[in-house]
């Protein structure tokens, strides 16, 4: 079963006190430690045979929609203060939802300010699967 582990810049439940301290208030070493930990998490999932993909997103994007035939796409944004902002994701392939939650919690234990666990909320979303062959 594949799960998307979503990291949000903003949005989701109220951050814990550790998670509320923004990265620009950390020391350079704390930032490096955080990034090294994230790499370590990906390596751990790889080593366990669970890793599928990881990507970071640039924080600024644009909303785009179709308008009418022959007309250019309509764009909107970027919005400085959208409620929800996705920072990036990791995709894992695991045997159970319990394991997916454990993996997300591990990701969330990444060190932040003063090396304390960031306790960042990670959104866990199951992928749609193939319909099973045996149904009756």
């Amino acid at each position: 079963m594949k799960y998307l582990l979503l990291k949000h810049y903003r949005g989701g439940p109220t951050p814990t006190p550790n998670g509320a301290i923004l990265m620009d208030q950390w020391t350079p070493e704390e930032v490096s430690d955080h990034i090294a930990f994230m790499r370590h998490v990906a390596d751990t999932f790889r080593e366990r045979g669970e890793f599928v993909d990881a990507q970071a997103l640039s924080p600024e994007g644009t909303f785009v929609r179709y308008d009418a035939d022959g007309k250019p796409p309509v764009t909107d944004g970027p919005f400085a203060e959208t409620k929800d902002l996705i920072a990036g994701w990791m995709i894992i392939d695991v045997d159970s939802v319990e394991r997916a939650h454990e993996a997300a919690a591990y990701l969330s234990s990444a060190p932040g300010k003063d090396g304390r666990p960031l306790q960042e909320w990670i959104e866990v979303r199951p992928f749609m699967e193939e319909p099973p062959t045996v149904t009756d």
């Binding site: 080593e47 366990r48 045979g49 669970e50 890793f51 599928v52 993909d53």
Partner: peptide, 13 residues
Amino acid sequence: LVPEATMAQRISR
């Protein structure tokens, strides 16, 4: 639908 390296790792584990 997983990377080959991931599957190789799963098998060797």
